[in-house]
Design a binder for these strands. Structure first.
Lengths: 199, 199
DNA sequence: CAGTTCCGAAACCAACCAGTCTCGTAAGTG
DNA sequence: CACTTACGAGACTGGTTGGTTTCGGAACTG
């Protein structure tokens, strides 16, 4: 599961220790290149060059390209804070508005399609992707269920469907239509869905 | 723009004519393989073998892999009937329910991510994909605008946003969550959006 | 018939790339 | 110091694949 082939231990082994900065540089290079040239265009040579690292250093730490890429993607997955402001619209805005930031859009436009495409062929990646998605859904799911508890939302609401509508529409814009996704679009989408699930 | 390197003409040239079935067999093989192994895994040899055709036949008709794939994708694009039943919910159901069919799902799960990924890197494909998407949006757009004219829908509605919500959520399910998309899900999504845009 | 263009099969070539290895060196241990 | 392991750089290998060519033969025109 861990990135390096040899796990770090408290015991100091003889010999030069691995440069810990290399791990980060390599993983960052993988993510950047994945976004630039896609899954198919990714070469280990390019990763090594961009990371300022020898190929041997990469193969000393990972078993191969496959593992390297899977690890780089896991690194991209960061936990998301679960807002609880007492108002569903505000909660959802806090969850989805980060998608309007250019950094997130770069990631979504370039990286996510590469992932989706590869996941269709690579079952292990598909699993990781699904668990990542499930994790991200958690925050929104909690927010909606709390709102149902408060009577803010019709109790017969299909929570998963709501999340699919919001997340899906925003990603879809980024993927296909080429339209930009600003805060205004996100707020409109939230408003529309909230009207649709009002009690 | 045309698939064959040499355009067909009414004048009969000397020599054996090209077998017209080969074109179809090759393009079908490309689409199938694209769905099975993705963009990166597609090889011309595999296309030739599945199509029951020599590689030379492929290169006699297309300039290379790039053109071949672009052409195969254009073939997949078929015009969509624009329903006009007088009721928005019915119109939308007719537009989106075909997505519940297994064939469409296979295409959406496998082919679309491959396209999205490649479009992020390949501008020419991105253009084709965008025009394809725009075309498909037309039917839904017309239906909603007619409904606005009938007073069935709030006139301040953002039509594009509605379409993004519906299309995006369904594709998103297929891409990432691994959940199946049945007619019931589609109907619920339509119902929710319609409640959200009621006058 | 001759001449032309097609056909599938397969050999072939050149480029690319994952993965390995070697080299001279650096950074740790004792 | 000796010893060990990591380092970047780059040479090397083996397999894959895009693209070309060759082959014997088939399908046309005239």
């Amino acid at each position: 599961m861990a990135a390096p082939v040899v796990a770090k231990s408290g015991v100091r082994l003889p010999g030069r220790p691995r440069d810990p900065r290399a791990d980060a540089a390599i993983l960052t290079a993988v993510v950047e290149l994945l976004a630039e040239v896609g899954f198919g265009g990714l070469t280990v040579d390019a990763v090594a060059h961009r990371a300022g690292v020898g190929k041997a250093t990469i193969y000393r730490r990972w078993d191969g390209k496959e593992q390297l890429v899977l690890d780089a993607l896991s690194t991209e997955v960061q936990l998301m804070a679960t807002p609880d402001t007492g108002d569903l619209a505000t909660d959802l805005r806090q969850i989805y508005e980060p998608m309007a930031e250019p950094v997130a859009q770069q990631s979504a436009t370039r990286l996510m399609p590469a992932l989706a495409a590869e996941a269709a062929v690579n079952p292990e990646l598909a699993d990781r992707l699904r668990s990542f998605v499930a994790m991200r859904r958690g925050a929104a799911k909690d927010a909606i269920q709390r709102a149902i508890g408060r009577g803010e939302v019709d109790p017969s609401t299909d929570v998963d469907l709501c999340i699919d509508l919001l997340t899906g529409s925003l990603l879809y814009r980024l993927f296909f239509s080429g339209a930009d996704v600003g805060i205004d679009v996100i707020q409109q989408a939230i408003a529309l869905v909230l009207r649709g699930i009002a009690p």
